[in-house]
Design a binder for these strands. Structure first.
Length: 977
DNA sequence: ACTCTGCTTAGAGGA
């Protein structure tokens, strides 16, 4: 008997939801293995008792289940003991991780490929082809029109969609397929015979239906959901026909009727069992028009669920602990049958992982060795190390994000429970018409059914622009659609959804807030691309991994076109010295330039000017940043100088003033031919998007002279790399003395995941230009940051900046009010507030450590969200509307005339300090937001325990900056504000 | 020991 080596987890983590009954979720307490048998000790109670047992055999004992896993059981339980064997029962491992049907069917041939496919993106030309034909077919089905005329019209439209720009040569091929669609001669594809039964498709009930099945841990999108009439012969006469709803899978390639294709259909029947209970599904090959019925047996389902369990195990345990340190787990073995691998889209990643991570010292077969050499031979050890290091970091981070992913609440929590936590609105019915706004955007309106109408909708924390998931109340239609909230009133909600739900009229819905599943596929796809054997990737590896020194040319005249000289000189006029230096450095660079923008030094203006100059010289520029708002900030400035540009990205996220520059808007003006589209993509020298937006088809063709990345010190390396593939040279703008990329996982952070590319490359000081002349803060406020971070390098741009003070138009009347209050109440000392208000004291520290002043009494910037909520609640009076209360992090890149900074923490006893205030960069951001006056409130005694804040307080002391010990709770009785 | 932004994310086909 083998005892499981793992310690049973004594406590169930908070984020795990367990339940009994048909939607059961059991916690595995212990696993006991004997040959041919596995016995699980399980419980559906968080207290881990009562415990039940589950016997696994006939192959199920191979399920890689471990203590601490959550499982779902199907079948029978006899007095607390479950049996899963050949004939009965299913075990679904980690059921709340929904695995897609295609992942599972691809794991039949190669489990390794399925796991890699889940981590990295990949695709081929043939696939794109299939996507196009699918689209044409599905549109025709939606329009219920399969006439040749309509088909060719739709095919034409599909060809002009930007998604397919890279592969237009398949045009003729596709038309031939469309013309041969079985349905083109009239009506929908119709009949199918199997063992005497005749199934006739009577209606296409849905297209691209989205299914989440938490019961089997599956998800998928079903090509066509069809209504069929089934006629079964029985003893020579026909019975009354039976109506069923079944999944129909379209295939545009060769009619293989392969086990993968059939498995896909079986998985669709399984995941829709709660919706339609289909006994079978159809496989339709468009090339021949043949339709194959797929009627799954218990064995089919059993074996596919076993594969799913193995796959989910590999995906979930992508990292493992080895002596306190995490490392990447081994993947399933590489196939020895090279034939199968020939067309595998994961070829490169497969070889990379083997060489960089698995590093099997065991004697591998020659064919495999050869294959690995072929795919990775161009890479050096540092390259492989960089790859495996960042792969580990990303996996660690994704594991942490996954535990915080609250999506499973949609199916595990009742509406009542979810509404209590505020992220859900239930008991909703569709009201009014559904309005199609654009491609895949449908405006819906729901109202609260009268049963629950006494409880208003505005109680929920759902608000406009939030991402949401729509499901039904019973849990049969989980994840029907996703979209964004538009308006929330007491009784109604409007939102835009990716699907038209009008056929579900009458269903009672729930809307759940959806933080979205954060994938790392962009990170990892970029990493994988960096390892490619191509010119662009070779060069980036030299710069980013080998840290090859960046080169510069010596003479401007070779880059500056003659005719642009005057314009450039003109643009340069408005700049200060370091800004001019930055322009020059960028123009001279052959590889890259790093622009350090210290606080208030006009980063946005500098970038805007840089773009104007490059534009004047005729250079093309790819302008990016991590956030949409940062991209638009620059564009708003650029727009004023009448520099043309193309803004890529979803309209919903783009600034309204920039909307006319988006692709969608330009297309509305008329893009009819392929060359129109080409022109649209090539017309502007300047193209702007977020770093994540690089999946856009424009990048299949276009390359740029320069790529500018703003906020670069806040972007993680794998994401920052993305846009760099498409430019000859790049400029990173940021300040690593301000906040770094956000990393949730502690180990990942300690292993350097919060090091941006900006910081990594900074060691080449010859590539760095510092913008140290600032126009934001007056002299006193600036001095704080100078002493904290910049060693006095930060300078005021003008005497006016240096001496600017806060203007308080009603100061006199407030002062006299305070005086008269003091006279009437001599027991209150208000002198501190009088001095604090004086504009001539630009920096004040209000020390409340003696006084017991509640930190919740004052503040505008605070490091903690919870604190901001409290402050906001106190500022509810209309007098305070317009006062912006926000976190330090959110204030980065922005400023205000007067900042009140609350440090919040005040604890007498030694104890946990928290991480946030230990970060020099966060403090630096906090104190450099104010232009004229900075009021800081906190307990000096507590704060001296944070090294950075201590340094700041010492500086205040040395400079005799004003500091008060206050007893505000006594001094400020409720005055009428 | 509490800071938060990106994402059409499943499936397109070939042996």
């Amino acid at each position: 008997m083998i005892k499981s080596p793992f310690c049973p987890h004594s406590k169930v983590p908070d984020h795990v939801i367990l339940c009994g009954g048909p939607k059961n979720r059991y916690w595995v307490i212990d696993v006991e293995e004997r040959p041919g048998l596995k016995t699980l000790t399980i419980s559906c109670s968080k207290l881990l008792h009562p415990a039940e047992t589950c016997l696994l055999r006939d192959g199920w004992e191979m399920t890689p289940v471990r203590p601490g896993d959550v499982v779902h059981l199907e079948g029978r339980s006899d007095g607390g003991s479950w049996l899963v064997d050949r004939e009965q029962g299913f075990l679904v491992l980690l059921p709340d991780s929904l695995i897609s049907g295609t992942s599972i069917s691809s794991s039949i041939r190669c489990m390794r490929r399925a796991v890699l496919g889940d981590i990295f993106d990949g695709g081929s030309k043939q696939m794109l082809n299939g996507t196009m034909v699918h689209e044409v077919f599905q549109r025709a089905a939606t329009a219920k029109d399969f006439s040749l005329e309509t088909l060719s019209k739709l095919a034409d439209e599909a060809l002009h969609s930007p998604r397919y720009l890279g592969d237009i040569q398949h045009f003729f091929f596709m038309l031939i397929i469309c013309a041969s669609l079985p349905s083109s001669s009239g009506g929908a594809p119709s009949r199918c015979q199997d063992s005497g039964a005749v199934a006739t498709v009577t209606e296409l009930a849905d297209i691209e239906e989205n299914v989440w099945s938490p019961r089997f841990g599956l998800k998928g999108k079903i090509d066509v959901t069809a209504r069929v009439r089934i006629q079964r012969p029985r003893n020579g006469f026909h019975r009354i026909p039976e109506e069923k709803t079944i999944p129909l899978e379209l295939k545009t390639g060769r009619e293989s009727n392969s086990i993968e294709h059939r498995s896909q259909v079986i998985l669709y029947t399984l995941m829709t069992s709660e919706r339609y209970n289909p006994e079978a599904g159809f496989l339709l090959y468009l090339k021949t028009g043949n339709m194959h019925p797929v009627a799954p047996s218990h064995m089919d389902r059993r074996e596919l669920l076993k594969l799913r369990n193995t796959l989910v195990h590999h995906i979930h345990s992508c990292v493992e602990k080895e002596a306190e340190r995490s490392c990447l787990s081994r993947l399933p073995d590489i196939l020895t049958n090279r034939q199968t691998c020939q067309y595998c889209p994961q070829k490169r990643n497969c070889a990379l992982y083997e060489r960089a991570v698995d590093r099997s010292s065991a004697v591998t077969e020659d064919v495999i060795h050869e294959f690995i050499q072929q795919e990775t031979g161009h890479l050096t050890l540092p390259h492989l190390n960089y790859f495996s290091h960042w792969l580990l970091l990303c996996c660690l981070e994704s594991v942490t994000m996954e535990t915080r992913n609250s999506r499973k609440r949609v199916w595990l929590q009742t509406v009542e429970e979810s509404e209590k936590s505020g992220s859900c609105a239930g008991n909703l019915q569709l009201s009014g018409p559904v309005i199609a706004q654009s491609e895949g955007v449908f405006l819906h309106r729901f109202h609260r059914s009268h049963v629950a109408s006494q409880q208003g909708l505005t109680n929920s924390s759902l608000s406009s622009r939030d991402r949401i998931v729509v499901s039904d109340l019973e849990g049969r239609l989980v994840g029907l659609a996703t979209g964004y909230l538009c308006e929330v009133s007491q009784t109604a909600i409007s939102c835009t959804l990716d699907r038209d739900l009008s056929k579900f009229r009458g269903v009672t819905f729930r809307l759940d807030g959806d933080e979205g599943v954060v994938g790392f596929s962009t990170h990892l796809t970029n990493l994988s691309k960096l390892m490619e054997n191509s010119q662009d990737s070779d060069r980036l590896r030299e710069l980013v991994i080998d840290l090859q020194a960046p080169e510069f040319i010596s003479n401007l005249s070779s880059v500056l076109p003659r005719e642009a000289k005057d314009t450039v000189a003109d643009i340069l006029k408005g700049l200060n010295k370091p800004q001019k230096q930055a322009m020059k450095k960028v123009l001279l660079s052959k590889d890259y330039t790093l622009v350090v923008g210290m606080p208030g030094t006009g980063k946005t203006t500098t970038i805007c000017t840089l773009v104007r100059i490059l534009h004047a010289c005729g250079f093309s520029v790819l302008l990016t940043s991590y956030t949409h708002s940062a991209v638009d900030n620059i564009l708003l400035k650029l727009k004023r100088f009448r520099v043309g540009f193309l803004r890529l990205g979803q309209g919903q996220k783009v600034h309204p003033d920039i909307l006319p520059y988006t692709e969608e808007s330009v297309r509305k003006k008329g893009v009819h031919t392929l060359s129109d589209l080409e022109q649209l993509y090539n017309k502007e020298l300047i193209v702007a998007t977020t770093c994540m937006g690089i999946k856009h088809p424009i990048f299949t063709r276009r390359r740029f002279d320069f790529c500018i990345v703003d906020e670069a010190s806040q972007i993680s390396q794998p994401i920052c790399l993305g846009p760099l593939f498409y430019a000859k040279r790049f400029v990173l703008v940021g300040d690593h003395q301000q906040l770094p990329p956000i990393v949730q996982n502690h180990e990942a952070r300690s292993l350097g995941m919060d090091e941006s590319l900006f910081k990594r490359l900074e060691l080449h000081s010859e590539a760095v230009v510092q913008l140290n002349v600032q126009y934001r803060m007056n002299r006193q406020i600036m001095s704080l940051s100078n002493s904290l971070m910049y060693d006095g390098r930060l300078e005021c741009g003008s005497e006016r900046t240096a001496t600017a003070l806060l203007t308080l138009p009603f100061l006199l009347s407030v002062q006299s009010e305070l005086s008269s209050y003091s006279e009437a109440h001599p027991q209150h000392d208000l002198s501190w507030i009088q001095s604090t208000l004086l504009p001539s004291n630009p920096v004040c520290f209000l020390d409340c450590s003696m006084a017991g002043c509640k930190p919740s009494d004052i503040g505008v910037i605070a490091p903690y969200r919870q604190q901001l909520k409290t402050i906001l609640a106190l500022l509810q009076s209309p007098a305070f509307t317009g006062v912006e209360v926000n976190t330090v992090d959110r204030y980065q890149g922005r400023d205000k005339s007067l900042i009140i900074l609350s440090f919040v923490r005040s604890t007498a006893e030694e104890g946990n300090l928290g991480e946030l205030l230990k970060d020099w960069r966060r403090l630096n951001v906090a104190i450099t937001r104010a232009k004229h006056k900075l009021l800081m409130v906190g307990s000096a005694t507590t704060l001296r325990r944070y090294t950075p804040v201590e340094k700041l307080l010492n500086h205040l002391q040395q400079e005799n900056m004003i500091s008060f010990k206050i007893a505000a709770h006594k001094a400020l009785p409720s005055m009428d504000l």
